[in-house]
Design a protein around this nucleic acid. Structure first.
Lengths: 127, 127
DNA sequence: GCAAATTAATGATTTATTCAAG
DNA sequence: CTTGAATAAATCATTAATTTGC
């Protein structure tokens, strides 16, 4: 039996939806959903509710990703702690004096892009 | 004056960076970058920004590669038409072709955020 | 074999997004 | 709506690979 299978978007449909999303569409109203559905139906079977749910899910998962990223970054700290700073320069270093380890953090070419703002208490990078 | 030459990583440095990447490091924060830089400085001259750029580029180009693969999978369907372009339909005297005509609704490459013709009913679109 | 010429990789910059705080 | 922080995308620029003619 052709079970009532759930919608699975074609690559073209995904591409278009993502483009809409990128351009700012988050909660399309009925009119917008109609338009989008009409357009996307040329690439495959689709209903308005599919479009509605897609934006709901996409927005939610975007936020999920963001939060996941925060946790991932925390965990990276542990990975890196395996490699202590130490910098025992006894090895074959051509640059035994690491000038920028502490104070003069590398400033990017233009101060506009201040990657690592240094505060008196240290580095603060909020994400 | 030797012109400002760009950093070119040693094999050891590359190996270490790639190992970090494999372990999940993607966007190291300032502390992590300091740590990595300190460690890698024993293999050759290196600055924090080099590490920063390396991860930025490596991640981006990793993604490029994956995207390219996926795109290759999608047999060249009319994917490239992100927008239902009017498809230079004027070339033929008759414009009655295609079923994609509803597309014209979305032809809006210029107006970034006013994607849809607004109807009288108020659109609430989060921005 | 070897450089000059050409191409491919990749380091470094700039520009556009994103979310969300104010 | 505006803005800050972060970063992804796109681009520029230089180095490394490689091709080529000798």
């Amino acid at each position: 039996m052709t079970r009532p299978t759930r919608w699975s978007p074609t690559p073209e449909q995904i591409m278009f939806l993502e483009e809409m999303y990128r351009k700012g569409v988050r909660n399309p109203n009925a009119t917008q959903i109609q338009s989008i559905t009409a357009h996307l139906s040329s690439f495959g079977k689709i209903e308005g509710k599919n479009v509605f749910y897609w934006f709901q899910n996409h927005k939610a998962r975007d936020r999920q990703k963001l939060k996941k990223k925060l946790l991932a970054q925390m965990n990276q700290q542990q990975i890196l702690s395996q490699y202590p700073i130490d910098a025992h320069s006894s090895t074959t270093t051509t640059n035994s004096n690491n000038t920028n380890t502490n104070a003069t953090l590398f400033h990017c070419p233009t101060d506009q892009y201040q990657i690592f703002p240094v505060t008196s208490t240290g580095i603060h990078q909020e994400v």
